[in-house]
Amino acid sequence: MIQESQKDRSILVKFDHVGLSYDGVADILSDVDMVIRDGDFRFLTGPSGAGKTSLLKMIYLAQRPSTGAVTLFGENVNQMPREQLPLMRRRIGVVFQEFRLLEHLTAFENVALPMRVQGVNQNEYAQDVTELLTWVGLGDRIFALPETLSGGEKQRVALARALVAKPDLILADEPTGNVDPIMGERIMRLLVELNRLGTAVIVATHDLDLVRRMKKNILRLKGGRLTLHGPLKERTHKPAAGQDQGAAASRSAMGAG
């Protein structure tokens, strides 16, 4: 099975019985098996504390699995030496709920950051950066500092930053958590559009309404285990209650964040 996955170049991420625990404390993730292929769009859902962020962290190499094997782009990263991690990370773009922009840099400079750390000459990426900022609707805020931007604008800068190095995979951890619902919808449509252009996308969210509307496959985490691996079933209507729950959940997440 492992050999098969190494041959299959369309597999971007493969988890084999992956578990995660912090020094003896109860397992955060246990026995997670999953495969993300080229062009996939996945929602990663589950209640707060289910391990969504930890799972993403293992993909963008901020966290090493305690057990099992994580394979990225055909290479096992469990034992990968530190010097090789940057090359892996450059193939993955990440968007966070709390944006994580560098506050002393302009939108342009923030978006250009992945190119700059690779030592690319500014002449080569200036056009791309400008076009990306225009694509996310911030063509007129190119030289704005993050403190002057709204949550939705910051998130779109963060999205442009995640895209600038043309990654094979985009991870988004609660990307709509700190933006208003209309902007959340807009950001989600940008991610879907991106996926249509060929980039694999994983979006962690507990906003089930959003997930239902997008009609995409989901990975459902509960108590550190992957419990559902496929499209979310259309439920028979419980509309008002469902929406309220979703809104309340995202508000509490904002408070916690």
Partner: peptide, 17 residues
């Protein structure tokens, strides 16, 4: 708050912070 035209070439001279 628009400070410069949207032409990428105009961005090149900006100082690297």
């Amino acid at each position: 708050t628009m400070e410069k035209p949207l032409d990428g070439s105009a961005l090149v001279p900006t100082k690297r912070r």
